[in-house]
């Protein structure tokens, strides 16, 4: 998936977003003077866009990302709930072509108790590969399976590949329903003790 393409909103549009957000009961305070608002379209949503608010008057900068259809705002909080809520409100449009993009978006924004899930599309371009010792690098290269996508008889997408989670590489089938719900089947741990120095998503998404 190419990196998300964010477009900075003009002053008026940005203020409109901030005003709408400020009326919410659970609103997080963002000052109009020091906050930049950007938006981004995702190919599998028709009515909802992403809006990213960045407060530049703090160090480090503080940012939150929301789904919005222009009136409703749902904050991405690192759990699956906001994504599933949007999938229900504005039915997600998944195809064999964009299901990988959806997974990359999903895993990039949802963390589990053991941190990030990262689907490895290319073993030669695993983030922070250089931080691993030579034996681990070899292990990664030898154990990563190419990603395959098929649609089964129940119209679920079955994405088979190797994932990084909790310091392990696990080959698994990620089952994605047409409504965007995700489960994992046939999990086979293939390599353990692979600890990346930082979240794989802290390096920009490497694959075009």
């Amino acid at each position: 998936m190419p990196q998300l393409q964010w477009t900075r909103l003009g002053r008026e549009q940005a203020h409109k977003v901030l005003e709408q957000l400020s009326t919410r009961r659970d609103a997080v305070v963002f000052s109009k003077d020091v906050t930049e608002v950007s938006s981004c379209h995702l190919p599998f949503y028709t009515n909802y866009w992403l809006f990213r608010l960045v407060n530049y008057a703090t160090m480090p900068t503080f940012s939150l990302t929301y789904f919005s259809d222009g009136t409703d705002y749902i904050c991405l909080d690192g759990t699956a709930n906001p994504v599933y809520t949007v999938n229900e409100k504005s039915p997600i449009q998944l195809t064999e072509k964009n299901v990988l993009q959806y997974l990359e978006f999903f895993f990039g924004n949802v963390q589990g108790s053991e941190g990030d899930v990262f689907l490895i599309k290319d073993p030669a371009r695993v983030p922070f590969m250089s931080a691993l010792n030579p034996a681990q690098q070899q292990g990664v290269t030898a154990n990563v399976k190419p990603v395959t996508v098929v649609t089964d008889s129940t119209q679920n997408f079955r994405v088979r590949g190797t994932l990084y989670y909790g310091g392990e590489l696990i080959t698994s089938t990620v089952v994605v329903t047409p409504a965007g719900k995700i489960t994992f089947q046939d999990q086979i741990p293939v390599l353990s003790g692979v600890y990346l120095p930082e979240s794989p998503y802290s390096e920009a998404w490497l694959e075009g």
């Binding site: 699956a80 949802v110 589990g112 108790s113 053991e114 899930v117 994932l163 989670y165 909790g166 310091g167 392990e168 696990i170 698994s172 995700i182 489960t183 994992f184 999990q187 741990p189 390599l191 353990s192």
Partner: peptide
């Protein structure tokens, strides 16, 4: 090996 269960992700 095999400590992580990916489905724990959604608990």
């Amino acid at each position: 090996m095999g400590q992580s269960n990916l489905n724990d992700f959604f608990k």
